[in-house]
Design a binder for these strands. Structure first.
Lengths: 160, 160
DNA sequence: TGCTAATTAGCAAGACTTGCAAATTAGATC
DNA sequence: GATCTAATTTGCAAGTCTTGCTAATTAGCA
């Protein structure tokens, strides 16, 4: 689903109401390519609808996830991020700036473990970690080659 | 690294001391196949060393990660889990019981996005989600087919 | 227009993790 | 073995992210 119109249908199908808050959050999610956190969306939503509650943002995001309208991304460190793209795709995470971008991977869905053949697989997710082109460029220009932290450590550190 | 002996060397190489607490935590990690949380390890450690602090467990786990002796696993929902296996492997997560097991995947390391070709990849991780054989078996026997929550929602829910 | 169940807002609280400072201790030195 | 010092451990307070609870509000139906 993409259109706000079908959103109303989806909500009603679930016996739910289409409130202005829900419309706004849904819309903001879809305008946003950055896989925002609840806090990010709250900030944006507040600009357009002063007084909206962070609680409502969390609530709405959870509902949308339940309805299959978005997915959670939990790639280490910090807040859950939300992805309105529920199609077949994967993620590339920059260990330098933390950006997450959607990517596609040929054959990912058919990957199988060579062991654990008794595990019933519903879903396959691939995560690439590395350095995005923007960070790579600025790194070449000298400057910010930081200490020898592991990627995860860096992610942890960038939390603050 | 696997042996406590080389642990001492590794610690000294980092200008660190080999304390009883660190030895214990390291040992427990390696005896444990379940990808425990800090709290799990704390419980086990407390049994053998009453008075050890949860703070120390967290601290030690972070150090070991920095030293490359273990890795963090953050697969949705709840506490970080720790994996002493730093070799090339991936994970299968049971959406029913939450168990995480190590698996191997042929060709995973050479996967590449079909898009985002300007992203420098350091690491590729594959996560399978599904139902482990134990849960599948008990499910067949009837009983606990729970409501239609998404995998992530289930994970979230099982947090408590 | 009225009614009612659903929703929102706000705040308190829970889970997980880290910062800080004082007391303790591993390991080097003599 | 005794001494010394920087590293480590503890315990607690605090920070971040998220959810529970409840009174007030409101969407959507009759």
């Amino acid at each position: 689903m993409q259109s706000p119109a079908s959103l109303a249908v989806a909500y009603r199908a679930n016996g739910r109401k289409l409130t202005p808050q829900r419309q706004l959050i849904f819309q903001l999610m879809h305008e946003n390519e950055t896989h925002p956190t609840a806090e990010d969306l709250y900030a944006q939503a507040s600009a357009q609808m002063p007084g909206i509650s962070l609680r409502t943002v969390y609530q709405t995001l959870n509902e949308l996830a339940e309805m299959g309208e978005l997915q959670f991304i939990e790639i280490g460190s910090g807040a859950t991020r939300f992805d309105p793209n529920v199609g077949d795709h994967h993620h590339a995470v920059c260990d330098s700036c933390g950006q997450i971008r959607d990517v596609h991977v040929r054959g990912a869905a058919t990957l199988r473990p060579t062991d654990s053949t008794d595990f019933v697989i519903n879903e396959v997710g691939v995560v690439f970690r590395g350095i995005c082109s923007a960070c790579e460029t600025s790194r070449r220009k000298g400057s910010t080659q930081r200490g020898a932290k592991s990627p995860v450590q860096q992610a942890k550190a960038s939390k603050k």
